[in-house]
Amino acid sequence: MSTVKMNTANFKEIERCIIELGQGNNDAFDRLYTLLNRSVYAYALTIMRNVHDAQDIANDCFVSIYANAHKYLAQGKPMAWVMSIVKNMCYSRFRQSQRFADVDESQLENQLLVSSDVSAEDRIVVRTCLYKLSEQERIVVVLHAVAGMKHKDIAEHLQIPLSTVLSKYNRALAKLKLYLQEAQDEQT
């Protein structure tokens, strides 16, 4: 899986895969999974702040995409459609459990330690995103930096003004730079 920034060409490919999947071409599912997995999981984790819940939701989300692909209306915004599914599933889980399922920073750290190819630096980046930013800030950051959504689409998705998205994004990124720099300095 590449860490290249999502661009218009990726979105077109995602849309094409959803349409093909809706028409019964199951091969499109693998491609779709590769294109979307990181964004779907990152968004679920950002809202839930719990690795296990995020994994469940990401998987449920793909099942839902599979089940509903035939209903997708192609409007050139497949990421917004997918992210709405993730968001609604997260909120629905909150409602079902009648509690906020997130874990604290050290528990998350432990959850992340399970995988061996995650470096200490990666854990710091993720932890900083999840715990040093407000909920809306981290959502805006993940939707833009990870899922590649444009700010105006994020504004529409979150139903907040574009100017708010932009200012939150700038503030969040400035904060992150600062924390990551500090962490880097500590390590050296």
């Binding site: 999974y33 994994q55 630096e121 854990r123 992150l176």
Partner: peptide, 20 residues
């Protein structure tokens, strides 16, 4: 910074394609 965030989330994302 954006690239770093992307990369880190990429690394922590599990691959569950088969069970999905």
């Amino acid at each position: 910074t954006e690239g770093k965030i992307r990369e880190s989330f990429d690394k922590i994302t599990p691959d569950d394609l088969n069970s999905v």
